[in-house]
Design a protein around this nucleic acid. Structure first.
Lengths: 150, 150
DNA sequence: GTTAATGCAAACACTTTGCAGCCGC
DNA sequence: GCGGCTGCAAAGTGTTTGCATTAAC
C-alpha cells in the first residue's frame, strides 16, 4: 500500500473510524487506478484481490471518505467519479468532455478570479473542490470542426 | 400558452418534428413553474390538466428539447433540472447551494474570462450552458459563519 | 465484550426502451 | 395513409438500506 493510503487510513483511525482491510483496498484501488475513477472500476479492481467485496461497501467507504474530505466526488451525468484529495499546492478542477467522457484537470488558479467575483457580487462561497466544466476536449472539438474562438 | 412556448413549438415544427399537445404542455409547465425545474415537477404539473400524461413522454420531450438547445439541462446529484433557454443577451450560469439546494443565476459574463483561458491553454471548448458552481449561498454561509474571504 | 462495519439481498429513484395503437402531417 | 409520437409496462442503471453476522477496538 502506498504512503498516501496509509496516511489516509491513519486519519480515519484518528477520527474514530475502524481501519478495515476493505477500506484499505478501496484506497489502494483509487490510488492504483489513478486520477478520476468510477465506482465500478474500484469495485472490479478490489474484487481481483478480494472476491467477497460488495458494491455496497465501496459506496459506504466512498461516502465516508467524501464526508471526511479525503476523496473528491465529481458528479457526471452517468455515475459519480472519485479521486484522492491532493495537496493544497496541487488543487485543481475538472473539464469533462461531453463527447468522449474523459475528465481533464486544470489548475485551481484559473478559477480563482471567478470564485472571488462570485463571492464579492453575490456572497456565494464557491466550493471549488466540486467544480466541473463540461464541453469538448481539444481532440473532439477538432474532429467536429468546432472553432475554439467562440 | 405563452408567446415563448409558441415560438419554441414553431421551431420544433420547422425542424420536422410534430407539434403534439403533450409537447406544448411540457413547455407550458416549464414556463409556468419558472426557473429550474425537475422532471417530476413538470410531470405532476402536466398531470393536473392531462391525467393520461406519462413520465416517459416527459423524458422524451426533454431529450428532444435539449438536443435542439431549446432547454438547458443542469445535472445535479439527485435528478436533472431543466429550464428554457433564454435570449442570448440573458445568458447565465448557476450556483447551487449545497446546504439549502437553491439554484441561483449569475450572468454569463462572469465566466467568460475563464472560458477563454481554458480554450487558450488547453484547447478545451467549454459549453457554458451546462455550467454549475456548487458552494454555499450568502444566507447559508452566514449561518455557518463561513468567511467570504477564503 | 461492544459496537461499528461487512456481505448479502432487496428496495429505491431516476431514466430508458419495446411495442401496439393513435394522430399530426 | 405514412411515420413519428404516445401510453403503458417492463427493464436498466446507479445507489441506498435492513439485517444478521463478523471483526476492529
Amino acid at each position: 500500500m502506498a504512503r498516501r493510503d496509509i496516511e489516509i487510513l491513519e486519519r480515519l483511525k484518528a477520527q474514530g473510524h475502524r481501519l478495515t482491510p476493505q477500506r484499505g483496498m478501496v484506497l489502494s484501488a483509487i490510488a492504483g487506478l489513478g486520477g478520476h475513477v468510477g465506482v465500478d472500476q474500484i469495485f472490479q479492481r478490489v474484487r481481483e484481490v478480494y472476491p467477497y467485496m460488495d458494491v455496497a461497501t465501496v459506496y459506504r467507504t466512498l461516502q465516508l471518505l467524501k464526508r471526511l474530505h479525503l476523496v473528491t466526488e465529481i458528479v457526471t451525468g452517468s455515475g459519480a467519479q472519485y479521486e484522492l484529495v491532493r495537496q493544497e499546492t496541487d488543487r485543481h478542477h475538472h473539464m469533462v468532455c461531453e463527447q468522449c467522457g474523459t475528465t481533464f484537470d486544470f489548475p485551481a488558479s484559473y478559477a480563482e478570479s471567478l470564485r472571488g467575483e462570485l463571492t464579492r457580487a453575490f456572497g456565494f462561497v464557491a466550493h471549488l473542490d466540486h467544480f466541473t466544466v463540461s464541453g469538448l476536449c481539444a481532440a473532439c472539438a477538432g474532429k467536429q470542426g468546432v472553432s475554439t474562438g467562440g
